[in-house]
Simulated scan of single mutants.
Amino acid sequence: MRILNPVSMQRGRFIVALLGMVSISGVTGCANMNRNAHADSLAGPAGLKRELVNTDSFVLTAFSRISRPGAPLDLYIEGDGLAWISRSEPSLDPTPREASGLALAATDPAANVVYLARPCQFTPMAMNPRCGVPYWTGKRFAPEVVASMNEAVNQFAARVPGQRINLVGYSGGGALAVLIAAHRADVASIRTVAGNLDDEFVNRLHQVSSMPQSENAIDFASRVAAIPQIHFSGANDTVVPPSVAQRFVNAAGVRCARALTIPDLAHDSDWSGRWPGLQAIVPACSPTIPGQ
């Protein structure tokens, strides 16, 4: 029987650990490549070009198609992505596997379409020293996140000077669509798809921790109440059930806000397949009645 001395054993453990790290790194790298490749496969046929957007807090990844600067801009915001591996274990990279927000944008035939990924999604972490687990868990709607996303919207708005912006947000991107709209005067409409418009209510529903460092979209409902908006929910959505959209509409008022529940769809269903028909439903405010 061969007896290993302590130095040999320690060296062996180090080599095993190193090989394990290399293996994990390789798997992570492949996963990132797959997620990026999937995003490119969605964006390419739609003429959406990948670009990086520098803001004060984060470098964001966007896919854009600006072909007529004199026309309005449709701007899509991604959901929370791969924020959690399990109920209690956060991911190390929130880049979405499926990029549902990008899939919606890819079906939009408008002349000017922009998709914005959330902080730390798709962009190499080395370019974002600020990135860390809090920014895709408890701080995902933090004021600095909203400010960064709004800065990016400013940069794309400058490419279509004087034009109005139609905001579309999927899941957590719906919350950011509202939070961004609350800071702007050029938003023509808001559409959310399975939007997390009341994170305190949703977190209580799922018995998970609150997010005191994040802003809650429903608290800003009155500030966007005059913007035409539709909030789409899936009838089978158990992650963000239709009651969330209705709560937001109740807070915003029904003159300009509308909640629509779509049969047979869940949170992660093929929303992009239904999007051309849903996008054709135009948000509008009801006429004001004198004396009311």
Score class of each variant (00 low, 15 high):
Leu179Trp: 03
Ile77Met: 03
Pro242Gln: 04
Arg11Thr: 13
Val22Cys: 11
Thr192Val: 01
Thr288Ser: 15
Ser171Gln: 06
Phe156Glu: 01
Leu60Ser: 01
Ser286Leu: 15
Asp264His: 10
Val208Pro: 11
Thr288Ala: 15
Met125Gln: 13
Gly173Lys: 07
Gly47Ile: 06
Asp270Trp: 13
Gln207Met: 12
Asn34Asp: 09
Ser64Glu: 04
Ser86Met: 01
Trp84His: 04
Gly101Val: 08
Ala157Pro: 05
Phe58Val: 00
Glu215Leu: 07
Cys120Pro: 14
Arg164Asp: 03
Val145Ile: 11
Ala142Ser: 09
Ser286Gly: 08
Ser243His: 06
Thr137Ser: 04
Ser214Leu: 03
Ala245Ser: 12
Leu18Glu: 09
Asp80Val: 01
Arg118Val: 09
Met9Ala: 12
Cys285Lys: 03
Arg97Asn: 09
Gly277Leu: 10
Leu48Val: 11
Trp84Leu: 09
Cys30Met: 14
Ser210Lys: 11
Arg164Thr: 13
Val160Lys: 00
Glu151Ser: 07
Leu265Arg: 08
Ala142Gly: 02
Gly273Leu: 06
Arg65Leu: 12
Gly132Trp: 02
Ser64Ile: 01
Phe220Leu: 11
Ala175Asn: 12
Val53Phe: 12
Gly195Ala: 04
Glu215Gln: 05
Cys131Met: 09
Asn34His: 13
Gly26Gln: 09
Pro241Cys: 07
Ile66Thr: 05
Val202Ala: 05
Val7Met: 13
Pro109Met: 11
Asp268Ala: 09
His267Val: 10
Asp186Lys: 08
Leu18Tyr: 01
Glu89Phe: 05
Asn166Arg: 15
Leu75Gln: 02
Ser91Phe: 04
Ala126Trp: 13
Ser243Lys: 07
Gln163Ile: 14
Ala188Met: 12
Arg97Cys: 01
Ile230Lys: 02
Arg247Val: 03
Phe220Ile: 09
Arg13Ile: 15
Leu19Phe: 06
Ser25Arg: 08
Gln207Trp: 10
Phe14Met: 08
Arg11Cys: 14
Gln292Trp: 10
Asn150Phe: 04
Ala280Asp: 13
Arg164Leu: 11
Ile165Gly: 07
Phe141Ser: 08
Met9Thr: 12
Trp136Gln: 01
Ala235Tyr: 06
Ser67Ile: 04
Asp74Pro: 02
Arg97Thr: 11
Ser209Phe: 00
Ala103Glu: 10
Ala235Ile: 09
Val224Thr: 07
Asn32Cys: 13
Val146Leu: 03
Gly162Phe: 02
Ser148Asp: 07
Ala177Ile: 03
Ala181Leu: 02
Ala185Cys: 07
Met1Ala: 12
Trp275Tyr: 08
Val7Gln: 14
Ala257Asn: 11
Asp74Glu: 10
Thr107Arg: 15
Ile227Gly: 14
Ala225Phe: 07
Arg247Asp: 04
Thr107Asn: 13
Asp270Ala: 14
Asn154Gln: 05
Ile190Gln: 11
Leu82Gly: 00
